[in-house]
Write a protein that binds this DNA or RNA. Sequence first.
DNA 1: TCATTTTGTGCAATCGATTGCGTAAAATAA
DNA 2: TTATTTTACGCAATCGATTGCACAAAATGA
Lengths: 337, 337
Amino acid sequence: MQKKEVTIYDIAQALQVSPATVSRGLKNHPSISKKTCKKIQETAQKMGYRSNALASSLRTSRSFTLGVIVPRLDSNFMSTVLAGMEKSAVELGYHLIIMQSFETDEKEKECARLLFNHRVDGLLVSTSAERGHTEHFAPFLTKNIPVLFFDRVPLDPHPFSSVTINNQRAGYELTKIMLEKGARQLLHVTGNTNLRVYKERLDGFRSALKEFSISILPDHIWQTNLGVEDGIRAAEKILRMKTLPDGIFVANDTCAIAIINHLQKHDIEIPDQIQISGFNNDPFASLFTPQLTTVQYPGTAMGERAVTTIVDLIKNKNKSPKREELDFTLIPGSSTL
Amino acid sequence: MQKKEVTIYDIAQALQVSPATVSRGLKNHPSISKKTCKKIQETAQKMGYRSNALASSLRTSRSFTLGVIVPRLDSNFMSTVLAGMEKSAVELGYHLIIMQSFETDEKEKECARLLFNHRVDGLLVSTSAERGHTEHFAPFLTKNIPVLFFDRVPLDPHPFSSVTINNQRAGYELTKIMLEKGARQLLHVTGNTNLRVYKERLDGFRSALKEFSISILPDHIWQTNLGVEDGIRAAEKILRMKTLPDGIFVANDTCAIAIINHLQKHDIEIPDQIQISGFNNDPFASLFTPQLTTVQYPGTAMGERAVTTIVDLIKNKNKSPKREELDFTLIPGSSTL
DNA sequence: TCATTTTGTGCAATCGATTGCGTAAAATAA
DNA sequence: TTATTTTACGCAATCGATTGCACAAAATGA
């Protein structure tokens, strides 16, 4: 039934040349005459030849495949990053195998193993929220396969590359906006501070308060999962406080908006009673009333940069890891004064 | 420098058995004694052996890889579907190569070619918005590689499988909600009706109006790109109408919310003056005030179903294509009466 | 015309795992 | 003990493309 695979051998036979010549001719190798090249390519076309990437990869041990491990695919931000990655990858002749770690080290490890076996030429990782071990990336190191962390990088020191933004400064600036407008009872709703991104945003929050000589109490910092549910719960908790805070820095937009929404339902005026800022500039954020103060987190750019960097490392194995930081943009909205 | 690859030959030599035995032993082939199996696996572990998926795939011509082509990665709905796909795929021992067509036939074709060369075992496609040709999937057909369309399927008849929802009925029901509450001047803001999804939603809109004996004028149907910008433009256009509509069925949530937002800014009361319904139930939709009337579009489930179905087709090549339709859920909100 | 350089091709090994078929050894039956 | 069945394993070909090296033919130079 199934039509036989057309290989370079078939083409070779049809043209009465050797497979070696066909292989070279197909990619315009300089030592093959123009005429033969052309003939080979035409016949290949005619016979419906399709190069077998597997065979090629096996022989050359380059798969032109990049592995990507993300906590989850269904996040606004992450899908933007992936979009950027895919675009750049294709432009550079690579493609992506994308896997989810579901925020567990266990799965992350499993993904790494699988991608390793699949002989990816490079690995792009946004780490899981569990206290991140990095040993499972060691095999890549010994085989000299570049690994690059983006967005979420391990807290521990590691010998790999990374692409991030300066979360500390972003957190600092978002907090400062509220402080400058008079907020003094500040709250920070954050995610898992095992993750460097959240830890750094928290650091930024801290240093802004410090600058205004406001002492930081542990119960001004709430660790949540930053989902809609968490926002609602946080809002309820806020409503039960004896004195309301007058400024909240929420570590992502989803949660920030959930909080705003719930507080508004209970007749709290935003930003007059409480100023609120988010993080990420999710597409919906600008549509809310009041418009959310947030930072533009350059997802697409991050994806593109991650890929171009890792491809560069693949092509120049001798280069040492690169730590890159992208610019962010403050988006002032009417959720702060 | 680079450590030499450990292969089954190395293990074979270390254990003084044949590579064939090692190959079998690693996967507990029944014809290898338990004892030998165990010994082989232990040594493999000890020597740091990693199976070479490329070699295996080349030999068996099964790559355990599924190709996925989507219009774009950075869409809320799509990332949900992909999340579901990835999850199911891993569970079934497969993984995903994801590519974007950026809504052009050209790129879609290119993606198909690439994925074909990479010997994917199956192809999952959500078609581009351009008038979809399906010839580029023909090679898959001849090689008996299953192709399955999800969400966006070609308008033309085709010999492949599909997983969709009943967009026609969903559109019908969303429209009917507004009609039953008295709306009579209805507007439909839709996407590219070359796409079956939008065409069907439009059909649903039409049949609901017909049921209420309301005639449909072409200028009650606006084709847009359904983005935030498009929503704003649509809202402005609405504001300029001599008589305002009293009901709008928008073909996705993003655009619906953009419209609501803009109309509200111009003091239009939703739903009192105009009822509005969306489509998709994007995570943010429920946070808006008024809460959007929409349909829950089962992204994760769709992704999972698409993968389980295609894997089934891969394993049973003789089975004929399957057309599946998933259930949707109406989410009544306060954006309609 | 003969020597030398340049061009164009082919040979054959290689990348690592798989598998149909054959067979020696062990287990069982007679 | 001999015949028969089972069990456990090895041989060698195969999947398709790549590439260092050798070499013949053509082009150039003297």
